[in-house]
Design a protein around this nucleic acid. Structure first.
Length: 458
RNA sequence: GUGGAUGUAGCUCAGUUGGUUAGAGCAUCAGAUUGUGAUUCUGAGGGUCGCGGGUUCGAGUCCCGUCUUUCACCCCA
């Protein structure tokens, strides 16, 4: 008999892990709802036609494809089969795939349900996504995203509120040392214009995004192989090396971007986002205008975000941005603008674990375990159990006849904080030994008193 | 997709230039203790050394393949 294993890059989550994960999920959900977002769920699988072409060529390769049902090879063209080229055969044998993110299924949903959606439409979605990637630290093949998107408005309030929500979620779960990086596609295009790299943007974006990781020299090296001139590299780094406050960077770039329309647009957007934050009564703490931030899916057109937790070896834990043309990909005639972002719970979990930020009492368990000596005391215990549960106190009774030691060990293992041992004395008197497993103290009380005691501590 | 590391008890890991019956801690179970655990003591169970092949008188140890996990690159939450 072979030992069972899990598919590469997937994990089980036991009770201890789930308690911590739910702590994160609960807080994200509360914040999303507090900002007026409504829940949405979409199927794990989508038609491949909805998924392909939305994430670039790399993304298409990372899609998990689902084999058609039935005798899926029967009608496949012989020539295609003999060519032994999977790209030719795939469309014939697979028409469904697992979702790669939540944004594209959301756009599909919006296009399909336009008649009943009121705009601007704000939805949140917390579901797993799948990527056929090679797993490594902080990277899984199945992981959860928590998306909040607004579609149908160009207002930069949305961008500002994204920053507010990130701050609020991190505040709630106890992460204090983090950076929200913000940039704008227009700024990136502006840079390309100014240094004379128009039409050659993509290699530039890919290279400068790695700046803080590999350094200036390596970025230059990479760009030289892409035929960037020394002159363009000099003016590029004149821009990228601007230091100082967000305001200073904006002012510097305004002077640089006088001739570029998209650059000016980007700067004005960013400026307004910072001003809005002030009107909300907050500041740009944790927020950094990062001119080199170029990461993000190909469909972003406006502001782009990325959040990093400082001093951990985990990549970004959240990202997002504005996309103007997403619904057009599904044949939408109108130009619906959307903006959204996503928390990566699995990475947030890894980071919090690394930093030791989880509260100790995150375990989900019963408050009370009832112990007993025989059939009669077990029966008596059931009535006590019902009273505890009716009072809203999570509780359970040891289901088998067992030595008291075993029953108390069980309580310890499950981190149940209180026990009540029931025997013939207790059945006669109705006075029960209420024991605190942490301190070892025990008090003889009637059940009503015990309930009061537990409630007063919760 | 490219390159490196890894795999020994349920868990974390020892295991010498290849040499007899593969060890420890933790965990589990039983007892010391007929109604009070988490600290103590005693004992017990638990392994096709990832899988397949090869070299050798002999392989946990060396070689090849394969799978797993993991790290980096590409890309990304």
């Amino acid at each position: 008999m072979e030992k069972p294993t899990l598919p590469k890059g997937t994990r089980d989550f036991g009770p201890a892990t789930m308690a911590k994960r739910q702590f994160i999920f609960d807080n994200i959900r509360k914040v999303f709802q507090a900002y007026g977002f409504q829940p949405l769920e979409t199927p794990a699988m989508e038609n491949l036609s909805t998924l392909t072409g939305k994430y670039g060529e790399e993304g298409d390769q990372l899609l998990f494809k689902i084999l058609n049902s039935g005798d899926f090879l029967k009608d496949v063209d012989n020539q295609k089969l003999e060519a032994r080229n999977s790209k030719l055969v795939t469309p014939a044998i697979s028409e469904k795939g697992l979702r790669y993110d939540l944004t594209v299924p959301f756009a599909r949903y919006v296009v399909m349900n336009r008649h009943e959606i009121g705009f601007p439409f704000k939805r949140y979605q917390i579901q797993p996504v799948w990527r056929a990637d090679r797993p490594q630290k902080g990277r899984y093949r199945e992981f959860y995203q928590c998306d909040a998107d607004v579609v149908g408005t160009n207002s930069l309030l949305c961008e500002a509120e994204i920053i507010l929500m990130i701050k609020e979620v991190f505040g709630r779960i106890g992460i204090n040392d983090y950076t929200i990086k913000i940039n704008h596609r227009g700024v990136l295009n502006g840079i390309a214009d100014v240094i004379g790299a128009t039409g050659n943007e993509t290699p530039m974006f890919v290279a400068i995004d790695k700046l803080d990781k590999i350094g200036e020299e390596k970025v230059k090296e990479e760009l030289r192989t892409k035929d960037f001139t020394e002159k363009s590299l000099t003016s590029l780094f004149e821009i990228l090396n601007v230091k100082g406050s967000n305001r200073n960077k904006l002012a510097f770039l305004f002077s640089k971007f006088e001739g570029t329309r998209s650059g000016q647009k980007g700067l004005h957007d960013l400026e307004e986002v910072f001003e809005l934050l002030e009107s909300y009564g907050t500041d740009d703490n944790h927020v950094e205008f990062d001119i080199a931030l170029a990461r993000g899916l190909s469909y972003y057109t406006g502001c782009i975000f990325e959040v990093k937790i400082n001093n951990v070896s985990i990549g970004s834990v959240s990202g997002g941005g504005r996309y103007d043309n997403l619904t057009q990909a599904f044949g939408d005639k109108e130009n619906l603008s959307g903006v959204g972002f996503s928390f990566g719970v699995d990475r947030i979990y890894d980071a919090m674990e690394e930093l030791g930020l989880f509260p100790k009492d995150a375990q989900i368990s019963s408050k009370v375990l009832l112990c007993h000596f025989d059939e009669a005391s077990l029966r008596y215990g059931l009535s006590v159990l019902s009273k505890l549960r009716a009072a809203g106190i999570a509780s359970e009774i040891y289901p088998d006849q067992a030595k008291l030691k075993k029953q108390l060990d069980f309580a310890n293992k499950k981190m149940i904080p209180y026990t009540i041992v029931i025997g013939s004395d207790e059945m006669n008197s109705g006075v029960l030994p209420f024991k605190n497993m942490g301190t070892g103290e025990q008090e003889k009380l009637e059940i009503e008193k015990i309930i009061e005691r537990i409630r007063s501590q919760a």
